[in-house]
Structures are given as structure tokens and as C-alpha cells.
Design a protein around this nucleic acid. Structure first.
Length: 572
DNA sequence: GCCGTTTTCGGCCCGACTGTTTTCAGTCG
């Protein structure tokens, strides 16, 4: 599919047009078209053959012609021209925070600066401060912006952002006058990575709240601080924004700042069709200009004729339509989780004993847990030879007699070998209550090979769950080449569950594929893959991902009670 | 550049904050 490439080119053209001082709406138009093309499910070439490019939202005559030109010739003449007129390094300068198109073009015109490196040199030589509307402070800010840009990390993993956010929320909670303290943005939506941390609150004394915020011990730099909002940097690169907002508008404000942008666009146009204009401050009746205020998000959604939509699914992927017709899913919650079906102990590469893991799990109120240590083929993780697994089974039987109201299940995380065979013979697998099968080797197989490999594991009657089905590690390692659509079809056919591995660096399956699995009638197991007692608390990340995938309690294997689970696994 | 069941022209979000000014332009979300 050429869609992604076309989206990239359009977005780039938007940047270049902006640098040339083009009309801002034109710039936005290119970016909208890029987003639209990116989110399409059908191949652009197919759409173009049918003559339907202009039916893509945000794509009109002019952009359709450019897309067509690209599909036919492999390039876009007007883009080439933009590139000839604007040095390529300039677009990159826009990614320095504080620098916008106006400043970048001025720097280029007056100082001949066209790369970040040249800008840094100019600022160090104090050539920037002599320009109009520039001064020593802006010069210093540019240098700081460049420093941050140099050590910028990519997006922040949920597993990093959420603990930071919770610590900050905990401290702000104690500040006098603060109320309605809440996360917003992509973190509230539970995305697997976030750009920054957005916090909203109301307060009887905004100044005190802002002061307390910028003075938090974790804060390393204050980017800006006003009467009602402030931005700071914590942990070297993580930006945290706090906004103190008006009590009576809190509902519309938090709706607005939670996003996603796409969801908000949909909601605003829906409001318009009902005669209202929706802003972050109020819902205004167009007819007479009367403003309606909402202190609670729930009331805003209700006023627009729909149920309150959980933040995790606010992506304009059908949730507004579902809410309007009262067909929203009842998303699974952490409190629905009855156990963990993929946990390691010190028998293989885990840190803690079975007893320690059990007592932590009991603390979560779980009913059961499956110990799935590695099989012997994974020697690096001290995988268990069959004899040691048998030995462990006996020990588990003894432990089960000792604990009350809790069941320890015998499990294994068995290797799916490169040829698709499993690492234990059937006689061994038969003795297990839960078999998770995973790929940990030969990652670089071709897509066909890898897909067949996983499917042949699923065809074993003993395999219950495919562990971390794509092998990706966020920001570290790409997923292996695998045709997930075929894998999920096979899962539906063989009754095999897919794992949502809750480890924050995995979240595998991700939200989209989890939803696809559900559509195909495949069950999912949200497992922590914990290698220590603290690892068990990753469940919340997995549940967020499941919620983003529209999963309900009934879709999740480990939301089943023990009896129901065992009968589903064919062990009841 | 896109869009239209109030429109084929005139709209497209706008308020907070900063650094520079001495009343405001530029950036951000």
C-alpha cells in the first residue's frame, strides 16, 4: 500500500507551505488530507482506479490530482518545487519547541540559517539576539530547546508515564483548594505511548495550585508558568502540563483535552448538526447564542444525545455512532480480572518463589494463577526439562492443599520451535492446566513461515493461548513478520485464545488487533508475564489496551471464574 | 486547499503565555 508514503508526502508539503508563509488553512488542509489518507483501510491505488480519491474526507480536486500524479509518476512536481525553494533542514527546525514557521523563516532570511546545527552556532555566537523581537532570553530558550531536542526520547511508554503521573497526582491531591484533579490527553485514553502528561484540575486558588506544581521535587525545569497553566519537565525529557480551569466548564474542558482530535472533530460536527457549537468552554446554541455549561463530562455527552464514552475508545472508530444508538460495549475493568494465566517463578527465570507470587496474587483478590515457566528449549531462561516440570507439578498439588479460596494452575510457556513443533511432547502438555505457546527464537523468518509456524502450534489440542503474538517490544524491537489476520482466523477455528501481554513494553496484541480478534470471536487472555511479584501489577496496562480494543468481560478468558475457565479450557 | 440539508463564497477555534515590546506577534495545545 502506498497510503503511508502519500500521507508522509502530504504532511511534508504542509510543513514546507507553512515555512513559506502560506495561508494557515491551506497548511491545515494538507495535514488533514494526510491524516485521512493514513487512516484509510483501502489501498489508494484501488480508490484511484475507481475514481474515488475526492470522496476521501479532506481531499478535494487539487490534492486528488497530486495523489494521482504520485501514483502514476512516483513524484509530485509541486512538492519538488517546494523542496527546491526551501532547504530541507528548515522543516526539522520546526520540531524545536518554541520555534514556529515565522521564526524559522526569519532566521533563514536574516542569518542564512537552514539547519539545526547552524542555528545552534548562530545562537552561541549571539547572532540571534540582534534580530527583531529577539533578545537574550529567546536566544537562551532556543539553545535549551535544541538541547531537549537532542536528548528527546521518542514517545513515552505508558508504563513510564503512568507511574510518574500518579506520583504527581498524589502530591497535587494534598494541595489545598485543588479539586477535580484528573488526567487528560492520550494518557487518559490509555494509549501505549504518550507524547506528554496532561493534568487538569479546578481550584479555589489557581495561583497556589500552579506554584505547588512547579515546585514539585521531581520538576527539573519550568517551561512556562502563568496564572492558570504551567508546563514543566521531569525525568529529563517528560513534559507535564497542568491547567487549572473553571469549575462550571470542567466537563467540556476535560472532554476537549482528552481527545482524541479525531473524536473531538466528530463530536463537534455532531453538535453542529444538532444546532450547537461545542468549544472547550461551553456548548453554545447557534440559534440564540445561549451558552450551556457542563461541570461533568457525562452531562455533556448526555446533552448531545448519547451515553458517556469511555476515554479509551475515543478515537472516532465507531464509538460515537455506537453511543448514539445505545450500543456502547461495557468495557472490561481491572476489577473483572479473576486471575493471571502467565506468570514465571524462580523455577525458570523468575525472581520469586511460587509461594511469594501466590501471596501477592491473593492480595489482588485473584482466584487463580497459572505458573507458566519456560520450557527446556529456552535454555537462556533456565527452561524446565520435563522431569523438573513433573517435580513442580507435585509441589503445586501440595501448595494447593495449603492455600484456601485460591487455585494454583499448572502451566507452561512452551516454545514454538522454528518448524512449528512444540518443545514438550503431548504426554507432558497433557498434564498441564494451561498451555501458553510462544515464539522466542528465529525471529527473522519470512512472513509465510512464521504465520504457519504459529498456526501449527495452535493446531495442537493442548495449546490454549498464544503468548505475546507478535513479539514486538515498544521502542525496542519490531514485531516479527506475521500475517495476523490468518493467525486470528486460525485462532477462531481452533478455539485458541490470544494473549494481551500486559507488560508495558509489550502490550501485545495491541488495541487494534485485539478488537479484530474479538470481531472474529477469538477470546483474549490479559496476562502480566510477570517475572517477579511487582510484575503482577502490570495488569492495569493490559486492561487499558483491552479496553482500547473494545473488549468486554465476556471476551477475556481470565475474567472467567475458575470453574468456567477450566471448562472452557476443556479441563473442567 | 476543502467544504456545503442555513453556503459554490467565505468560512475554517481561539485563549493563555512568553518575550519583546510600549501594545503585540508568535507559539502552543
Amino acid at each position: 500500500m502506498k497510503n503511508e508514503e502519500v500521507a508522509r508526502l502530504l504532511r511534508e508539503m504542509g510543513d514546507l507551505l507553512e515555512l513559506q508563509g502560506e495561508n494557515g488553512f491551506k497548511v491545515v488542509a494538507y495535514r488533514r488530507a494526510a491524516r485521512s489518507v493514513e487512516s484509510m483501510k483501502t489501498d489508494l491505488e484501488e480508490v484511484s482506479r475507481q475514481g474515488g480519491l475526492e470522496s476521501i474526507p479532506g481531499v478535494g480536486k487539487a490534492i486528488a490530482a497530486k495523489i494521482d500524479e504520485y501514483l502514476k509518476t512516483g513524484k509530485i512536481e509541486s512538492r519538488e518545487r517546494l523542496f527546491r525553494e526551501t532547504p530541507p533542514g528548515m522543516a526539522e527546525m520546526l520540531s524545536i519547541s518554541g520555534l514556529g514557521p515565522k521564526t524559522v523563516s526569519m532566521l533563514h532570511q536574516k542569518l542564512g540559517v537552514s539547519t539545526i546545527a547552524e542555528l545552534e552556532a548562530a545562537a552561541r555566537e549571539h547572532r540571534v539576539r540582534r534580530l527583531p523581537r529577539m533578545g537574550p532570553t529567546s536566544e537562551k530558550n532556543i539553545l535549551r530547546g535544541i538541547e531537549r531536542w537532542k536528548k528527546r526520547s521518542e514517545r513515552i511508554p505508558l508504563g513510564v508515564a503512568l507511574p510518574i503521573a500518579e506520583e504527581i497526582l498524589g502530591r497535587l491531591q494534598k494541595v489545598t483548594g485543588i479539586e477535580n484533579l484528573s488526567l487528560a490527553g492520550s494518557l487518559r485514553r490509555g494509549m501505549e505511548t504518550v507524547g506528554d502528561i496532561d493534568i487538569l484540575a479546578t481550584s479555589s486558588s489557581p495561583e497556589a495550585a500552579i506554584r505547588a506544581f512547579v515546585e514539585l521535587p521531581r520538576v527539573e525545569e519550568v517551561l512556562m508558568k502563568g496564572a492558570t497553566k504551567a508546563s514543566v519537565i521531569v525525568d529529563e525529557t517528560v513534559q507535564v502540563d497542568l491547567r487549572i480551569v473553571d469549575h462550571r466548564s470542567f466537563g467540556t474542558v476535560i472532554q476537549y483535552f482528552t481527545g482524541s482530535k479525531e473524536h473531538n472533530v466528530k463530536l463537534r460536527s455532531l453538535a453542529l448538526s444538532k444546532g450547537y457549537s461545542l468549544s472547550e468552554y461551553s456548548l453554545t446554541r447557534v440559534a440564540d447564542g445561549e451558552e450551556l455549561f457542563f461541570g461533568r463530562e457525562e452531562d455533556l455527552y448526555r446533552h448531545l444525545g448519547m451515553e458517556w464514552i469511555p476515554p479509551e475508545i475515543r478515537e472516532d472508530r465507531g464509538e460515537v455512532e455506537a453511543a448514539l444508538s445505545g450500543r456502547l460495549p461495557r468495557l472490561v475493568e481491572v476489577s473483572d480480572i479473576r486471575g493471571d494465566l502467565h506468570v514465571h517463578t524462580d523455577w525458570s527465570d523468575g525472581l520469586h518463589t511460587m509461594e511469594e507470587m501466590v501471596s501477592t496474587a491473593q492480595g489482588f483478590g485473584y482466584e487463580y494463577m497459572a505458573f507458566c515457566d519456560h520450557s527446556h528449549g529456552l535454555a537462556i531462561a533456565n527452561g524446565l526439562a520435563a522431569e523438573r516440570l513433573f517435580e513442580k507439578m507435585e509441589l503445586i498439588a501440595g501448595l494447593n492443599d495449603q492455600v484456601e479460596g485460591f487455585s494454583i494452575l499448572v502451566g507452561t510457556e512452551v516454545e514454538i520451535r522454528a518448524d512449528g513443533r512444540l518443545d514438550y511432547p503431548n504426554e507432558v502438555l497433557e498434564g498441564c492446566d494451561v498451555v501458553v505457546a510462544s515464539v522466542h527464537s528465529s525471529y527473522h523468518q519470512r512472513e509465510r513461515e512464521m504465520t504457519n509456524r504459529i498456526i501449527s502450534a495452535m493446531e495442537s489440542e493442548h495449546v490454549d493461548i498464544i503468548g505475546h503474538p507478535t513479539g514486538r517490544k515498544i521502542g525496542e524491537r519490531e514485531a516479527y513478520e506475521v500475517d495476523l489476520e490468518r493467525v486470528l482466523e486460525a485462532a477462531a477455528r481452533t478455539g485458541t485464545a490470544m494473549e494481551i501481554n500486559a507488560h508495558p513494553s509489550r502490550l501485545d496484541l495491541n488495541d487494534r488487533w485485539s478488537r479484530r480478534a474479538k470481531e472474529l470471536g477469538v477470546k483474549l487472555a490479559i496476562n502480566t508475564d510477570a517475572h517477579s511479584t511487582c510484575g503482577l501489577s502490570a495488569m492495569e496496562y493490559g486492561v487499558k489496551t483491552a479496553r482500547r480494543g473494545w473488549l468486554e468481560k465476556g471476551d477475556v478468558l481470565n475474567a472467567f471464574g475458575l470453574r468456567e475457565l477450566l471448562s472452557h479450557l476443556g479441563r473442567g
